[in-house]
């Protein structure tokens, strides 16, 4: 951060920009105030410092400023951090394991290598493909070591739960019912859409989603972990052989 004191108009503009970034529906359209502030953030170092500092004070971090808008990540435990209570409240321990596994699965599926994080192209993913990919990677997760309670052990447990679930159960109306992995993947995508990390791509068929820049930046920000690394290895091999 620069040591120069920021003037108040700059602080106001910075707050406005963070306000836009927090409002999930705001889009930096041409000619709009959001767009102007984003451009200013990209081009003016002093302003960027003010915004970053203000975000830090609020318990936020600016992960990036793609064309679709500023992407923020919360500090854990901060006012903006998602809590378990914000997810579906009826989730039991197994549901949470599966949710986490699918989240990692989608990340590994879409971005198998670090180079993928620099590629601004949005990825199209399909529910069935993700499910198949995760199913095909369960052995790799089952081989992870780790003591009770370690992330590796949790990954093994998640893989076990996933393997035990059927791929598809349908309701009487023919939709996917809870308790199958396709529904679990569908729910994760629903949540990603809510988070602005994915969008439905109905024009290319049902169950198809775009992963947005927000998701790319979120995954790029991740320090990784044994489970993510294992799945990315599987996916890299899959991509290389295709």
């Amino acid at each position: 951060m620069s040591s120069v004191a920021a003037d108040l108009t700059q602080v106001r503009a910075a707050a406005e920009l963070l306000g836009f970034a927090l409002a999930r529906r705001a889009r930096p359209v041409e000619g709009g105030q959001y767009r102007a502030l984003l451009d200013r953030y990209r081009s003016e170092l002093g302003f960027k410092d003010v915004v970053d500092t203000m975000a830090e004070g609020l318990g936020l971090e600016v992960l990036g400023v793609p064309r679709s808008g500023m992407v923020l990540a919360p500090e854990p435990g901060g006012a903006f951090a998602t809590r378990l209570a914000d997810l579906r409240t009826t989730m039991d321990a197994d549901d949470r394991l599966v949710f986490g596994l699918v989240l990692i699965g989608v990340a590994a599926f879409a971005y198998p290598t670090d180079a993928d994080f620099d590629d601004p192209e949005t990825r199209l993913v399909e529910i069935v493909r993700v499910d198949e990919f995760i199913r095909g990677s369960l052995d790799a997760l089952g081989g992870l070591g780790g003591v009770e309670g370690s992330p590796e052990e949790r990954a093994r447990a998640a893989a076990q739960v996933y393997a035990d679930l059927p791929q598809l159960i349908t309701t009487q109306t023919g939709r996917r019912a809870r308790g199958c992995t396709l529904k679990a993947v569908e729910e994760v995508f629903g949540w990603l859409v809510e988070q602005g990390a994915a969008r439905e791509a109905g024009t290319l068929g049902p169950d198809t989603f775009h992963l947005t820049d927000r998701f790319r930046l979120l995954v790029a920000d991740s320090a990784g972990g044994a489970a993510l690394d294992a799945l990315r290895d599987v996916r890299s091999a899959e991509v290389a052989s295709s």
């Binding site: 927090l22 409002a23 999930r24 936020l60 923020l72 990540a73 919360p74 854990p76 006012a79 903006f80 951090a81 998602t82 809590r83 378990l84 914000d86 949470r96 394991l97 949710f99 986490g100 989240l103 990692i104 990340a107 009770e148 309670g149 992330p151 052990e153 949790r154 990954a155 998640a158 988070q195 990390a197 979120l218 995954v219 920000d221 991740s222 320090a223 972990g225 489970a227 993510l228």
Partner: peptide, 17 residues
Amino acid sequence: VPRLVRFDDMVDMLWAP
């Protein structure tokens, strides 16, 4: 307050023993 996520925290939370 809008809730935001961080990938690792999210996974840690979901996979908390």
